[in-house]
Simulated assay, not measured.
Amino acid sequence: MSFKTIQTYFNFTKDQRTGIFFLFLIIVVLQTTYFFLDLSVASKEYPEKQKWLALQSEMDSLKVDFKNKKPIIYLFNPNFITDYKAYKLGMSLQEIDRLLAFRKENRFVNSPKEFQSVTKISDSLLNEMAPYFKFPDWVNNKKKDTKFKEYTVYQNEASAKKEKIILIDINQATKEDLVKIYGIGEAISVRILRQKETLGGFVSMEQMKEIWGLSPEVIENLNTHFKVTTLARFKKIEINNASLKELSQFHYFRYALAKQIVTYRSMYGNIRNIEDLTKIKGFPVDKANIIGLYLDFN
């Protein structure tokens, strides 16, 4: 290809040269604009989005805290411990089976030492579990067969005079015994006796907190003079056979809870222990140890 041939490619008419000039000028203007101006699209800020992001961050933080948090172990009666809870506390399947076999004979352990004797758990595991054991008052006082017991207290350190306080079984207390306590009149004494009749007998002095009109100070006075030394003889409620009406008439159950219990039985079969009852919505878990003593799970 000769130079003249190449030169023909650059021969433009006047209109073509004008077009090329304006095209070049447009390119220069666009390049200058792109260089000096920030044409990036500004991201829009949405307040709701920021709020949700902050909430998500808080939730992530709570999840981390929850994973690192040690589970809280509440006081419990070891006679009613479930397989799952026993396993979580470190008991082996053989140890759990020994306790279940013992309970099937309708027998109870009444102390940490007896619990270890039945289950054969190690001393180290017993030391970890024992602080969470909670036995009823009547168990703690089961060796006290007499109605009365004398305690020596000092009313005043200066005088150092001994006064004997007669400790009476609350289930054998009379109206006259109750009104002797400061803060208890005839009305409250009658209320206490009616509650005893309704329940068939008290199983713990904790039940005094359920009686309307008793202040903490009066309850403390009651605990000084009365205890549950022997378990009252009453007919236990057969939780797996009782009708809806019978369950709803129990002091600690109401119709709605009784209906839930009947529904639970129909869906899952017999209720084995108090732990099964605590799974039912509306069950007063804080009173489980007391309620369990009024029930028969056979």
Rank of each mutant, 00 (worst) to 15 (best):
Gly90Ala: 04
Phe12Asn: 04
Val190Cys: 08
Lys4Tyr: 07
Leu247Arg: 15
Lys134Glu: 04
Val29Asp: 01
Asp137Lys: 06
Phe226Asp: 10
Glu206Asn: 15
Thr146Gln: 11
Lys245Asn: 08
Gln7Asp: 05
Ile261Lys: 15
Trp212Lys: 14
Tyr74Cys: 01
Gly200His: 12
Ala256Tyr: 10
Ser61Leu: 05
Leu257Asn: 06
Asn127Glu: 10
Ala130Asn: 05
Ile165Arg: 13
Phe10Val: 00
Phe148His: 14
Ala160Cys: 05
Thr224Cys: 11
Ala160Ser: 11
Lys235His: 04
Phe10Ser: 03
Tyr252Lys: 09
Asn240Gly: 02
Phe3Tyr: 12
Lys143Gly: 07
Lys164Asp: 09
Lys235Arg: 13
Leu37Thr: 03
Phe36Asn: 00
Ser124Ala: 12
Val29Thr: 07
Ile168Asp: 09
Glu45Ser: 01
Phe21His: 03
Leu231Tyr: 06
Lys88Phe: 07
Lys209Asn: 12
Asn223Met: 11
Phe108Trp: 09
Tyr132Leu: 07
Ala242Cys: 05
Asp137Pro: 00
Asp60Glu: 10
Ile219Asp: 01
Glu58Thr: 10
Leu89Ile: 00
Phe226Lys: 05
Ile188Phe: 11
Val179Ala: 12
Leu126Met: 03
Lys85Leu: 12
Leu93Cys: 00
Leu39Tyr: 04
Gln16Ser: 08
Thr263Ala: 02
Lys279Pro: 10
Ala42Val: 08
Lys67Thr: 14
Glu246Thr: 03
Lys69His: 03
Val285Trp: 08
Leu126Lys: 03
Gly185Asp: 11
Val285Thr: 10
Ile121Tyr: 06
Gln172Trp: 14
Tyr74Val: 06
Phe297Tyr: 08
Asn270Asp: 13
Ile237Cys: 08
Met1Asn: 01
Thr8Ile: 04
Ser243Leu: 01
Gly292Ile: 06
Lys69Glu: 02
Ile170Gln: 06
Leu100His: 13
Val29Gln: 04
Asn273Gly: 04
